[in-house]
Simulated scan of single mutants.
Amino acid sequence: MRHTDPRWLDRNGEPIDEDHRGLVYDVQTLIDRRRALGIFGGVALTSLLAACSAQSTDAATTGGATSSPTASATPTASPSTSADASGPLAEVPDETGGPYPGDGSNGVDVLDDSGIVRSDIRSSFGSSTTVAQGVPLTIALTVRDASTGSALAGRGVYVWHCDRDGKYSLYGSGVENENYLRGVQQTDANGTVRFTSIYPACYSGRWPHIHFEVYQDVATAVASGPIVKTSQIALPAEADSAVYATTGYEQSVPNLAQVSLQTDNVFRDDGGIHQIATMSGSATGGYIASLTIGL
Score class of each variant (00 low, 15 high):
residue 159 V to Y: 09
residue 193 V to M: 05
residue 215 Y to M: 00
residue 128 S to V: 00
residue 185 Q to W: 10
residue 199 Y to H: 11
residue 121 I to P: 14
residue 169 S to F: 08
residue 201 A to F: 00
residue 124 S to L: 00
residue 132 A to L: 06
residue 171 Y to L: 03
residue 192 T to P: 05
residue 206 R to I: 04
residue 186 Q to G: 11
residue 153 A to F: 06
residue 155 R to Y: 09
residue 211 H to V: 07
residue 135 V to K: 06
residue 158 Y to P: 01
residue 185 Q to C: 03
residue 191 G to L: 07
residue 158 Y to A: 07
residue 195 F to V: 06
residue 206 R to Y: 14
residue 191 G to R: 07
residue 188 D to P: 11
residue 134 G to R: 10
residue 179 N to T: 11
residue 197 S to D: 13
residue 198 I to Q: 05
residue 183 G to P: 03
residue 189 A to H: 10
residue 148 T to R: 12
residue 161 H to D: 05
residue 128 S to G: 01
residue 132 A to E: 11
residue 131 V to L: 12
residue 162 C to L: 12
residue 191 G to A: 02
residue 136 P to F: 09
residue 135 V to L: 08
residue 205 G to C: 02
residue 134 G to T: 08
residue 126 G to I: 04
residue 136 P to A: 08
residue 143 V to N: 09
residue 210 I to W: 03
residue 200 P to E: 07
residue 117 V to A: 09
residue 184 V to F: 00
residue 204 S to C: 01
residue 134 G to D: 06
residue 215 Y to A: 01
residue 118 R to G: 01
residue 204 S to P: 01
residue 134 G to N: 08
residue 203 Y to S: 06
residue 177 N to A: 15
residue 169 S to H: 09
residue 125 F to A: 07
residue 150 S to D: 15
residue 164 R to A: 14
residue 120 D to A: 08
residue 212 F to R: 03
residue 206 R to W: 14
residue 153 A to W: 06
residue 122 R to L: 06
residue 163 D to L: 10
residue 128 S to N: 09
residue 168 Y to P: 01
residue 161 H to A: 08
residue 155 R to I: 02
residue 179 N to F: 08
residue 131 V to Y: 01
residue 161 H to M: 13
residue 139 I to E: 11
residue 118 R to I: 09
residue 175 V to A: 04
residue 168 Y to A: 10
residue 151 A to K: 10
residue 210 I to M: 09
residue 134 G to Q: 11
residue 173 S to K: 07
residue 197 S to C: 05
residue 122 R to K: 14
residue 190 N to E: 10
residue 119 S to Y: 00
residue 167 K to D: 08
residue 140 A to V: 13
residue 202 C to H: 08
residue 142 T to W: 04
residue 144 R to D: 10
residue 159 V to G: 11
residue 215 Y to Q: 03
residue 182 R to K: 06
residue 124 S to Y: 00
residue 172 G to E: 04
residue 133 Q to I: 13
residue 150 S to H: 10
residue 207 W to G: 00
residue 213 E to P: 01
residue 213 E to T: 03
residue 213 E to A: 09
residue 153 A to D: 14
residue 177 N to T: 14
residue 205 G to I: 05
